[in-house]
Design a protein around this nucleic acid. Structure first.
Lengths: 253, 253
DNA sequence: CAGTGGTCTAGACCACCGC
DNA sequence: CGGTGGTCTAGACCACTGA
């Protein structure tokens, strides 16, 4: 039984899935264990030459995959030391589709959600128009509240285009919150986030247990699949409790 | 006089600056005209093979530069059509170091700023401690207000580490606002943005011409040069006026 | 010193898609 | 159809930096 002095035993690099360009396959194969935690921060990733053998690819191809992972902050590379899993690899960059449920669970708090409203409406309704979905005949409207340790952390106003997601009309979201369900079941190719500050009034304030007029951080998210709008979400967060954090480096220009 | 039917006459691709890797030089050479507007959205960028000749580089190298520009949303590439300047090329991605002055000027409004306070303080002062700069002996404190068409759009609370930026102690920022001056004169390797919502009170509300208690979008930005903190800024924006917008695509994993 | 990534080349084949 | 980007290769030299 040789002691693993420096590196804990790691699962070997996973196999490729055969889908798409080789460098993206290699990227996915390496990103998987990093994101699901089986390769912890600081774990050493095989050298380029080694991956070259493992995957039967040229070094340039392996390099493209690793460069791409480094660009997105999942790994850090340095000459001689090699490539290691980055400290913050699992942190969700601000402008990705993130998920309150996962975020709450990461802090080891208990997560819970509650659906206050669920209704099929037309796109020409006030809600549909405000979200820019007036051209869509049928929308599913949801009002969902998310809790961390039974304390409200997010109020979610959600519209789902039922033409793009017919399956959603039968879904009651009893076990899976809508955001997670959508990520799993609906493809999207483009998203836009708008971040702004707004005062909580009326029901919004009441549900979030805030004094009317309290500042809230609001994230509005549109997603499209090609040209087709898929879903809209307006996410209310109590003022200073919810902070969007992003780290970055200077641009290259 | 042949009519330029489809493409307006464009400046030729600029020369390289000889600094750093070839692909980054090419990237900079192409990014310049895009960002300063001399190549408008939709303008066609020479094909890879053409740039290969122009810059005496191999196609792989040119490709790496263009791929990188496309990744960051400055250009769009499609087979046969070629590479064109993206629609939103000049929009500042949310999590970059952006500059109100440039933003205001882009909307063709007149930009103006005013320095309300300027003072050298110790890092152990309240302001220094709140910004996490307590270990720094000397800080320059500034309170700057930014206007678009004489209407306040941003209030900037600024701390500059004078150990990292000794030149700043003599700078009066009479012609150049601090943010722009810092970008020009101070190197940084890492930055962090925190976005939150907060109510404007007292002087903050008064300067921004808001009713006390109005929701503001606050961006707090730290930058470091290696391990050394360089500057801290807290930027207040009137609630819904200032929106941070980001577009993105699904991750590749 | 030597392992590792950083970069670059010259050429190749292919897929897409506007003309 | 043919121009364009997308990808891949096999090899090369170099720069950094940890052992």
């Amino acid at each position: 039984m040789a002691a693993n002095l420096v590196q804990p035993a790691l699962q070997p690099p996973p196999a490729l899935d055969g889908e798409g360009p080789l460098w993206l396959q290699i990227r996915r194969a390496l990103a998987g264990p990093i994101l699901d935690g089986s390769w912890p921060s600081g774990a050493k990733i095989p050298a380029e030459t080694e991956l070259t053998l493992r995957y039967g690819a040229s070094r340039m191809t392996v390099n493209k995959a690793l460069h791409s992972l480094a660009h997105d902050g999942l790994v850090e590379r340095r000459r001689k030391r090699g490539t290691v899993v980055a400290e913050r690899a699992q942190e969700h960059p601000v402008f990705e589709i993130w998920d309150v449920a996962a975020e709450v669970r990461r802090t080891r708090a208990t997560y819970r959600y509650s659906i206050h409203e669920r209704e099929v409406i037309g796109g020409d309704s006030e809600r549909g128009r405000l979200a820019g979905l007036e051209a869509q005949p049928r929308l599913l409207w949801l009002l969902v509240e998310h809790f961390s340790n039974d304390h409200p952390v997010q109020l979610e106003e959600r519209l789902i285009n039922l033409n793009a997601a017919p399956k959603a009309s039968k879904e009651l979201f009893g076990k899976t919150p809508p955001s997670e369900w959508l990520l799993k079941h609906l493809p999207w190719t483009e998203a836009e986030h708008v971040i702004l500050a707004r005062e909580a009034r009326g029901r919004t304030a009441k549900l979030l247990q805030l004094r009317p007029g309290s500042a809230c951080l609001v994230v509005e998210r549109h997603t499209w699949d090609g040209e087709v709008p898929v879903t809209f979400a307006r996410l209310w967060h109590p003022g200073e409790q919810h902070r969007l954090v992003g780290r970055f480096e200077p641009r290259k220009y």
